[in-house]
């Protein structure tokens, strides 16, 4: 320790005698180090104005859809539109489902792609990555924390849609027993659970994309490039999913099971379909998570 040590007590706790052959005693980790690392990352992700604007944008979707449906109620336009929009007037809960359905093809992947593509590349572009690494923060730990930050943001995006959808839907149309897609009704309590299941499934469906974004983010120092590449993946996946010639690989496409959340709105949901949806996401997370780790832990940081 240098004599410049401040009077506020030793800032470093040294454990002597643990390294017999080396001259430097290890510096003890402080309690709560992981918690502080995670909290700092989450504050960075959720506190950033750009990210907040994205969340507000997503929150506008259920608001606008709800108001639009309410205004056209009783006119010739009532019930017109894709998917679940026609059901909203019956039950405010369907505003949550309809909003998620509308955001799934593009808005949600865009938001998730921005957050995950920026995770490492953003720090590299700003030059802050090198200063994190020399603090030091272990590269594997840093990648895990970055993944956690991106996942949290993806969850925040889905939850924002759900919460705004629920609030607007309940206020404009009320929350009732649900009439299911396959006929029959379920009581309010059960319906809320089922919609919560839809929200959870959509959230889990974003995990594969987060892993892809994280991997792209470790490849470049240009965050916008990683973001764009990430956003392109679900679009390409959706295109491939629509070509009959590719039916052999389609079950493994990133987006193939995204709309299977509708299973939860049947009387007896097919758990096999839901589980294969989650399984495909887990596979994408495993593959791209491993690629991101292999890349990030060996890459030269020259930004």
């Amino acid at each position: 320790m240098s004599p410049a040590e401040s009077g506020a007590g030793p800032s470093v706790v040294e454990r002597p005698g643990t390294a017999a052959t080396t001259s430097l005693p290890p510096i003890a980790r402080r309690r709560g180090a992981t918690r502080r690392l995670v909290a700092s990352e989450l504050a960075l992700v959720l506190g950033r104005r750009r990210n907040r604007v994205l969340l507000v944008g997503l929150g506008l979707v259920p608001l606008l859809v709800g108001v639009m449906v309410r205004v056209t109620q009783g006119t010739a336009l009532e019930g017109q539109g894709p998917g679940f929009i026609g059901r909203i007037v019956e039950n405010g809960l369907f505003l949550v489902v309809a909003s998620l359905f509308l955001c799934l093809p593009f808005l949600l992947p865009l938001t998730v792609g921005i957050a995950s593509g920026d995770a490492v590349a953003g720090e590299a572009a700003a030059g802050t990555l090198r200063y994190l690494l020399v603090v030091p923060v272990d590269r594997t730990r840093l990648l895990l924390v970055k993944a956690l930050g991106a996942l949290t943001f993806a969850a925040a995006a889905v939850v924002t849609i759900a919460v705004v959808g629920l609030a607007v839907g309940a206020a404009l149309f009320g929350v009732h027993d649900i009439a299911l897609l396959s006929g029959g009704t379920v009581p309010v309590g059960d319906s809320v659970l089922r919609v919560a299941g839809v929200v959870a499934f959509v959230g889990m469906s974003m995990t594969g994309l987060v892993a892809v974004g994280l991997f792209f983010s470790t490849l470049t120092e240009v965050p916008i490039g990683a973001m764009a590449a990430t956003v392109v993946v679900p679009i390409v996946s959706a295109v491939l999913d629509s070509l009959p010639a590719l039916s052999a690989i389609q079950p493994w496409l990133l987006t193939h099971h995204w709309l299977d959340f509708a299973e939860l709105l049947r009387i007896s949901p097919d758990t096999g379909t839901l589980l294969s949806g989650l399984g495909v996401q887990a596979a994408w997370v495993a593959v791209f998570g491993a690629l991101a780790w292999a890349r990030f832990t060996t890459a030269d940081v020259s930004s």
Partner: peptide, 13 residues
Amino acid sequence: RLDAVDATADPRT
């Protein structure tokens, strides 16, 4: 931020 990510830094000081 730099202090928070430093596992050896004492938050009290």
